[in-house]
Write a protein that binds this DNA or RNA. Structure first.
Lengths: 160, 160
DNA sequence: CGTAAATAGATTCATTCGAATATAGTTGAG
DNA sequence: CTCAACTATATTCGAATGAATCTATTTACG
């Protein structure tokens, strides 16, 4: 039934399925790499996003928006990472409900170490299968799928 | 040696991040559609793969290979779907350990209904952002990333 | 035949997840 | 100032997850 309405719609579904599969399989491969030092990719995402935050840190709410995981899930994940000494959580002086998060020295070091290893894995996997020109092409296409290339907001200030 | 050394490696990482984000955001959007009738996308994947199986059905082992979820997880998911009357599980006459799976009439009807709605969502999202030619281009690129067109494995860490 | 290795699937277990809800702090109307 | 609506985070709770293991069966080989 997926293709009944027209060839063009079928091509759209085929593209989605291929994209889905590619992401899933690469993700699985990367996850099995030894670079993670016992952390999950989701935890690394937290470290990575915090590494991009300004000096003062980032509010948990903003982090949730960037992260694709649920708010309760992030809350508990932060708990664990604070216990492990990777993240520093302090009350937001401007809003008594809020929490400001920033990386500890350990957290920052871990992010850098994982980031370097992961980047190496990614480069090996992607460049083994696509040329540099094709990588650019791919990025342009997938950027358009998320509106990441829209007229505004190309600088990485992804508010989403 | 990673991340900073060359622009080409950075482009590979940028492409991966863009791909990751595109898949995640589209996935989240599709998940919130009303088309799922209370089922998860993972369950739909099971229905979909079984809809492609030959008349006699499919072995659970083969399904696991196609599905990107763990074997125990699939085993339990099948349990639930058998209880719900969507899947028929019978012993494999050729292998006493094995189970043959096939859709019930209800399961097949559900797959068709969900598939049609989902395809419509996918087509709307994808075709709203990329032209038909670009969709073909995207599919070709992502197919290559999974080796869907030719085996190649330079990563050393990824089996299968 | 008979036993060891391999394989398909089920089960155990600790962990994590998201939805719903609770708690605490803020904001705005009067 | 007070109350109601709103917001940021935490907690509760039931369900689903993967790694490791177990059971049953098949296969390989003497």
């Amino acid at each position: 039934m997926t293709g009944r309405s027209g060839g063009a719609a079928r091509e759209a579904v085929a593209a989605w399925e291929s994209l889905f599969r590619a992401q899933s399989e690469l993700f699985r491969g990367f996850s099995q790499s030894p670079v993670w030092h016992g952390r999950t990719m989701r935890e690394y995402d937290v470290l990575y996003q915090l590494s991009l935050a300004p000096e003062a840190g980032m509010r948990q709410r903003d982090l949730t928006d960037r992260l694709l995981i649920s708010q309760p899930s992030l809350s508990r994940m932060i708990d664990r990472m604070v216990d492990e000494g990777l993240i520093d959580r302090s009350p937001d002086p401007r809003d008594g409900r809020g929490a400001m998060l920033c990386l500890t020295a350990d957290g920052r070091a871990l992010q850098r170490r994982i980031g370097a290893g992961h980047a190496s894995d990614v480069a090996k996997a992607m460049r083994g299968r696509l040329s540099d020109a094709e990588l650019v092409q791919l990025r342009q296409l997938t950027d358009r799928l998320t509106g990441a290339d829209g007229p505004r907001d190309t600088t990485g200030g992804t508010r989403s």
